[in-house]
Protein backbone atom coordinates (compact mmCIF):
# COMPACT_ATOMS: atom_id res chain seq x y z
CA UNK A 1 0.00 0.00 0.00
CA UNK A 2 2.53 2.53 1.14
CA UNK A 3 5.07 1.34 -1.36
CA UNK A 4 2.59 1.73 -4.22
CA UNK A 5 1.71 5.24 -2.98
CA UNK A 6 5.40 6.11 -2.93
CA UNK A 7 5.78 4.69 -6.41
CA UNK A 8 2.86 6.84 -7.58
CA UNK A 9 4.00 10.00 -5.89
CA UNK A 10 7.49 9.72 -7.25
CA UNK A 11 6.71 10.54 -10.86
CA UNK A 12 4.34 13.21 -9.61
CA UNK A 13 7.12 14.78 -7.57
CA UNK A 14 9.26 14.85 -10.68
CA UNK A 15 6.36 16.19 -12.75
CA UNK A 16 6.53 19.79 -11.52
CA UNK A 17 10.09 19.95 -12.75
CA UNK A 18 8.85 19.21 -16.25
CA UNK A 19 6.26 21.97 -16.04
CA UNK A 20 7.01 24.61 -18.67
CA UNK A 21 7.02 27.43 -16.13
CA UNK A 22 9.42 25.51 -13.90
CA UNK A 23 11.66 24.68 -16.85
CA UNK A 24 11.70 28.30 -17.90
CA UNK A 25 12.16 30.03 -14.56
CA UNK A 26 14.06 27.60 -12.34
CA UNK A 27 17.50 28.59 -13.71
CA UNK A 28 16.75 32.31 -13.40
CA UNK A 29 15.30 32.01 -9.89
CA UNK A 30 18.27 29.92 -8.79
CA UNK A 31 20.78 32.49 -10.02
CA UNK A 32 18.87 35.40 -8.49
CA UNK A 33 18.55 33.56 -5.16
CA UNK A 34 22.27 32.82 -5.12
CA UNK A 35 23.03 36.48 -5.86
CA UNK A 36 20.75 37.60 -3.04
CA UNK A 37 22.53 35.31 -0.58
CA UNK A 38 25.92 36.66 -1.64
CA UNK A 39 24.59 40.24 -1.50
CA UNK A 40 23.19 39.83 2.03
CA UNK A 41 26.41 38.28 3.30
CA UNK A 42 28.40 41.09 1.69
CA UNK A 43 26.05 43.69 3.22
CA UNK A 44 26.57 42.22 6.69
CA UNK A 45 30.34 42.10 6.30
CA UNK A 46 30.73 45.57 4.79
CA UNK A 47 28.40 47.40 7.15
CA UNK A 48 29.55 45.57 10.29
CA UNK A 49 32.25 48.02 11.41
CA UNK A 50 29.95 50.97 10.67
CA UNK A 51 27.18 49.59 12.89
CA UNK A 52 29.61 48.45 15.59
CA UNK A 53 31.11 51.95 15.63
CA UNK A 54 27.62 53.38 16.16
CA UNK A 55 26.93 51.12 19.13
CA UNK A 56 30.32 51.82 20.66
CA UNK A 57 29.96 55.57 20.34
CA UNK A 58 26.75 55.40 22.31
CA UNK A 59 28.44 52.93 24.68
CA UNK A 60 25.35 50.79 24.41
CA UNK A 61 25.58 47.05 24.99
CA UNK A 62 24.80 45.00 21.91
CA UNK A 63 24.43 41.39 20.89
CA UNK A 64 25.59 39.78 17.66
CA UNK A 65 22.01 39.53 16.48
CA UNK A 66 21.45 43.26 17.06
CA UNK A 67 24.65 43.96 15.21
CA UNK A 68 23.53 41.91 12.19
CA UNK A 69 20.07 43.43 12.29
CA UNK A 70 21.75 46.85 12.33
CA UNK A 71 23.64 46.11 9.13
CA UNK A 72 20.31 45.46 7.42
CA UNK A 73 18.78 48.85 8.06
CA UNK A 74 21.62 51.35 8.34
CA UNK A 75 20.65 54.77 7.01
CA UNK A 76 23.80 55.33 4.99
CA UNK A 77 25.24 51.84 4.59
CA UNK A 78 28.36 51.16 2.56
CA UNK A 79 26.39 48.46 0.82
CA UNK A 80 22.63 48.63 1.23
CA UNK A 81 20.84 45.30 1.65
CA UNK A 82 18.63 44.17 -1.28
CA UNK A 83 15.38 44.86 0.55
CA UNK A 84 16.51 48.44 1.28
CA UNK A 85 17.24 49.01 -2.41
CA UNK A 86 13.96 47.41 -3.45
CA UNK A 87 12.11 49.51 -0.89
CA UNK A 88 13.70 52.76 -2.06
CA UNK A 89 13.09 51.83 -5.69
CA UNK A 90 9.42 50.99 -5.15
CA UNK A 91 8.99 54.09 -3.02
CA UNK A 92 10.60 56.20 -5.74
CA UNK A 93 8.34 54.71 -8.41
CA UNK A 94 5.01 54.53 -6.58
CA UNK A 95 5.50 56.80 -3.58
CA UNK A 96 5.31 60.13 -5.38
CA UNK A 97 3.33 61.76 -8.16
CA UNK A 98 5.04 60.99 -11.50
CA UNK A 99 6.11 64.64 -11.91
CA UNK A 100 7.40 65.11 -8.36
CA UNK A 101 11.14 65.84 -8.10
CA UNK A 102 11.62 62.78 -5.87
CA UNK A 103 9.85 60.42 -8.24
CA UNK A 104 12.04 57.93 -10.06
CA UNK A 105 9.49 57.92 -12.88
CA UNK A 106 10.09 61.63 -13.39
CA UNK A 107 13.87 61.21 -13.48
CA UNK A 108 13.65 58.13 -15.69
CA UNK A 109 11.43 60.01 -18.13
CA UNK A 110 13.95 62.85 -18.37
CA UNK A 111 16.80 60.42 -19.06
CA UNK A 112 14.63 58.34 -21.39
CA UNK A 113 13.79 61.31 -23.62
CA UNK A 114 17.50 62.18 -24.00
CA UNK A 115 18.27 58.49 -24.62
CA UNK A 116 15.65 58.06 -27.33
CA UNK A 117 16.57 61.28 -29.14
CA UNK A 118 20.27 60.37 -28.88
CA UNK A 119 19.54 56.87 -30.11
CA UNK A 120 17.59 58.17 -33.10
CA UNK A 121 20.38 60.64 -33.96
CA UNK A 122 23.04 57.96 -33.45
CA UNK A 123 21.20 55.39 -35.54
CA UNK A 124 20.72 57.89 -38.37
CA UNK A 125 24.34 59.00 -38.28
CA UNK A 126 25.59 55.42 -37.92
CA UNK A 127 23.64 54.16 -40.92
CA UNK A 128 24.56 57.20 -43.03
CA UNK A 129 28.26 56.70 -42.26
CA UNK A 130 28.03 52.98 -43.05
CA UNK A 131 26.34 53.76 -46.37
CA UNK A 132 29.00 56.22 -47.44
CA UNK A 133 31.77 53.85 -46.34
CA UNK A 134 30.29 50.94 -48.29
CA UNK A 135 29.85 53.03 -51.43
CA UNK A 136 33.18 54.80 -51.50
CA UNK A 137 36.59 53.33 -50.93
CA UNK A 138 38.01 56.84 -50.47
CA UNK A 139 35.53 57.60 -47.71
CA UNK A 140 36.28 54.28 -46.08
CA UNK A 141 39.95 55.14 -45.87
CA UNK A 142 39.39 58.72 -44.74
CA UNK A 143 36.50 58.21 -42.32
CA UNK A 144 37.23 54.90 -40.64
CA UNK A 145 40.30 56.01 -38.63
CA UNK A 146 38.38 59.02 -37.28
CA UNK A 147 35.38 56.90 -36.40
CA UNK A 148 37.60 54.58 -34.39
CA UNK A 149 39.50 57.49 -32.82
CA UNK A 150 36.23 59.06 -31.73
CA UNK A 151 35.64 56.14 -29.41
CA UNK A 152 39.11 56.12 -27.87
CA UNK A 153 38.61 59.33 -25.91
CA UNK A 154 36.73 58.61 -22.67
CA UNK A 155 33.27 60.12 -22.81
CA UNK A 156 33.64 61.31 -19.20
CA UNK A 157 36.37 63.66 -20.43
CA UNK A 158 34.48 64.72 -23.54
CA UNK A 159 31.07 65.28 -22.02
CA UNK A 160 31.91 68.52 -20.15
CA UNK A 161 33.55 69.94 -23.30
CA UNK A 162 30.44 69.15 -25.32
CA UNK A 163 28.22 70.75 -22.70
CA UNK A 164 30.32 73.92 -22.54
CA UNK A 165 30.70 74.29 -26.31
CA UNK A 166 27.06 73.56 -27.03
CA UNK A 167 26.02 75.79 -24.15
CA UNK A 168 28.06 78.64 -25.65
CA UNK A 169 26.05 78.42 -28.86
CA UNK A 170 22.85 78.42 -26.92
CA UNK A 171 22.03 74.73 -26.80
CA UNK A 172 20.89 73.55 -23.41
CA UNK A 173 18.84 70.85 -21.81
CA UNK A 174 17.78 67.88 -23.90
CA UNK A 175 19.83 68.38 -27.04
CA UNK A 176 23.38 68.41 -25.59
CA UNK A 177 22.61 65.25 -23.65
CA UNK A 178 21.22 63.61 -26.78
CA UNK A 179 24.27 64.61 -28.78
CA UNK A 180 26.58 62.98 -26.24
CA UNK A 181 24.35 59.93 -26.30
CA UNK A 182 24.43 59.87 -30.12
CA UNK A 183 28.21 60.31 -30.09
CA UNK A 184 28.49 56.99 -28.27
CA UNK A 185 25.74 55.04 -29.96
CA UNK A 186 26.49 55.68 -33.64
CA UNK A 187 29.67 53.63 -33.42
CA UNK A 188 28.32 50.07 -33.03
CA UNK A 189 25.74 50.85 -35.70
CA UNK A 190 28.35 52.03 -38.22
CA UNK A 191 30.54 49.00 -37.58
CA UNK A 192 27.60 46.59 -37.71
CA UNK A 193 26.04 48.10 -40.82
CA UNK A 194 29.31 48.25 -42.80
CA UNK A 195 29.50 44.52 -42.16
CA UNK A 196 25.80 44.08 -42.95
CA UNK A 197 25.82 46.07 -46.20
CA UNK A 198 28.75 43.95 -47.35
CA UNK A 199 27.07 40.70 -46.34
CA UNK A 200 25.27 39.78 -49.62
CA UNK A 201 26.69 36.69 -51.30
CA UNK A 202 28.81 37.31 -54.43
CA UNK A 203 26.25 35.27 -56.37
CA UNK A 204 23.43 37.59 -55.33
CA UNK A 205 25.48 40.62 -56.34
CA UNK A 206 26.27 38.96 -59.68
CA UNK A 207 22.58 38.34 -60.20
CA UNK A 208 21.81 42.01 -59.67
CA UNK A 209 24.52 42.80 -62.19
CA UNK A 210 23.05 40.45 -64.79
CA UNK A 211 19.78 42.36 -64.41
CA UNK A 212 21.82 45.58 -64.73
CA UNK A 213 20.36 46.91 -61.49
CA UNK A 214 21.36 50.42 -60.41
CA UNK A 215 23.41 50.75 -57.24
CA UNK A 216 20.35 52.26 -55.58
CA UNK A 217 18.35 49.15 -56.47
CA UNK A 218 21.17 46.94 -55.19
CA UNK A 219 21.00 48.89 -51.93
CA UNK A 220 17.25 48.79 -51.41
CA UNK A 221 16.57 45.31 -52.77
CA UNK A 222 19.68 43.44 -51.61
CA UNK A 223 22.09 45.18 -49.26
CA UNK A 224 19.51 46.68 -46.91
CA UNK A 225 17.47 43.50 -46.36
CA UNK A 226 20.67 41.45 -45.97
CA UNK A 227 21.88 43.89 -43.32
CA UNK A 228 18.72 43.55 -41.16
CA UNK A 229 20.12 40.99 -38.66
CA UNK A 230 23.26 43.13 -38.32
CA UNK A 231 21.12 46.23 -37.81
CA UNK A 232 19.20 44.74 -34.91
CA UNK A 233 22.29 43.28 -33.26
CA UNK A 234 23.96 46.70 -33.34
CA UNK A 235 20.76 48.53 -32.32
CA UNK A 236 20.63 46.41 -29.16
CA UNK A 237 24.17 47.43 -28.27
CA UNK A 238 23.54 51.03 -29.30
CA UNK A 239 20.41 51.57 -27.25
CA UNK A 240 22.09 50.58 -23.97
CA UNK A 241 25.05 52.76 -24.86
CA UNK A 242 22.63 55.61 -25.61
CA UNK A 243 21.27 55.25 -22.08
CA UNK A 244 24.77 55.27 -20.59
CA UNK A 245 25.60 58.33 -22.71
CA UNK A 246 22.53 60.17 -21.48
CA UNK A 247 23.31 59.35 -17.84
CA UNK A 248 26.96 60.35 -18.19
CA UNK A 249 25.87 63.59 -19.85
CA UNK A 250 23.81 64.43 -16.79
CA UNK A 251 26.81 64.22 -14.48
CA UNK A 252 28.97 67.22 -15.51
CA UNK A 253 25.99 69.46 -16.21
CA UNK A 254 24.94 69.30 -12.61
CA UNK A 255 21.58 68.50 -14.05
CA UNK A 256 18.66 68.79 -11.70
CA UNK A 257 16.71 65.97 -13.24
CA UNK A 258 17.48 62.57 -14.67
CA UNK A 259 18.94 59.32 -13.42
CA UNK A 260 22.42 60.81 -13.63
CA UNK A 261 21.32 63.70 -11.44
CA UNK A 262 19.93 61.23 -8.89
CA UNK A 263 23.26 59.38 -8.86
CA UNK A 264 25.16 62.63 -8.43
CA UNK A 265 22.92 63.93 -5.64
CA UNK A 266 23.09 60.56 -3.92
CA UNK A 267 26.88 60.58 -3.91
CA UNK A 268 27.02 64.21 -2.64
CA UNK A 269 24.98 63.35 0.41
CA UNK A 270 26.20 59.80 0.92
CA UNK A 271 22.72 58.48 0.15
CA UNK A 272 23.86 55.05 -1.00
CA UNK A 273 20.35 53.64 -0.97
CA UNK A 274 19.25 56.41 -3.36
CA UNK A 275 22.20 55.68 -5.67
CA UNK A 276 21.32 52.01 -5.79
CA UNK A 277 17.66 52.73 -6.41
CA UNK A 278 18.65 54.98 -9.32
CA UNK A 279 20.89 52.22 -10.65
CA UNK A 280 17.99 49.78 -10.50
CA UNK A 281 15.87 52.30 -12.40
CA UNK A 282 18.60 52.54 -15.08
CA UNK A 283 18.75 48.74 -15.31
CA UNK A 284 14.98 48.46 -15.65
CA UNK A 285 15.03 51.15 -18.33
CA UNK A 286 17.82 49.39 -20.25
CA UNK A 287 16.04 46.03 -20.12
CA UNK A 288 12.84 47.63 -21.36
CA UNK A 289 14.64 49.36 -24.25
CA UNK A 290 16.41 46.16 -25.31
CA UNK A 291 13.11 44.27 -25.10
CA UNK A 292 11.56 46.89 -27.42
CA UNK A 293 14.34 46.46 -29.98
CA UNK A 294 13.92 42.69 -29.65
CA UNK A 295 10.21 43.04 -30.31
CA UNK A 296 10.84 45.15 -33.40
CA UNK A 297 13.35 42.55 -34.54
CA UNK A 298 10.83 39.74 -34.18
CA UNK A 299 8.18 41.71 -36.08
CA UNK A 300 10.54 42.48 -38.95
CA UNK A 301 11.77 38.88 -38.86
CA UNK A 302 8.25 37.57 -39.26
CA UNK A 303 7.67 39.81 -42.26
CA UNK A 304 10.95 38.66 -43.80
CA UNK A 305 10.03 34.99 -43.39
CA UNK A 306 12.81 34.19 -40.94
CA UNK A 307 12.74 30.56 -39.90
CA UNK A 308 11.31 30.41 -36.37
Amino acid sequence: MTSSAAALSLPRAAAWRQHPLAVRFTPIVTVVAALMVVWYIAAVLMNLSLVRGGFEREEAPYTTMELIAGTMEAERPLLPAPHQVAGAFLDGVFGYAPNAPRSLIYHSAVTLSATLLGFALGAGLGIALALSIVHSRVLERSLMPWIICSQMVPILALAPIFIVVLGAIGLQGLLPKSIISAYLSFFPITIGMVKGFNAPEPMQLDLMRTWSATSRQVLTRLRWPTAMPYLFASLKVAITISLIGAIVAELPTGAEAGIGARLLAGSYYGQTVQIWAALVAAAVLASGLIALVGLAERMVGRRMGTRA
Partner: peptide, 16 residues
Amino acid sequence: RAYGYVFQAPALFPWR
Protein backbone atom coordinates in the same frame (compact mmCIF):
# COMPACT_ATOMS: atom_id res chain seq x y z
CA ARG B 1 19.04 42.36 -70.40
CA ALA B 2 19.61 39.94 -73.24
CA TYR B 3 20.26 36.91 -71.09
CA GLY B 4 19.10 35.12 -67.95
CA TYR B 5 21.76 33.59 -65.72
CA VAL B 6 21.33 30.54 -63.50
CA PHE B 7 24.07 29.93 -60.95
CA GLN B 8 25.31 26.75 -59.25
CA ALA B 9 23.15 27.59 -56.24
CA PRO B 10 19.59 28.91 -56.47
CA ALA B 11 20.69 32.22 -54.85
CA LEU B 12 17.12 33.07 -53.97
CA PHE B 13 16.61 36.04 -51.66
CA PRO B 14 15.60 34.38 -48.39
CA TRP B 15 13.45 37.26 -47.15
CA ARG B 16 11.26 37.19 -50.26
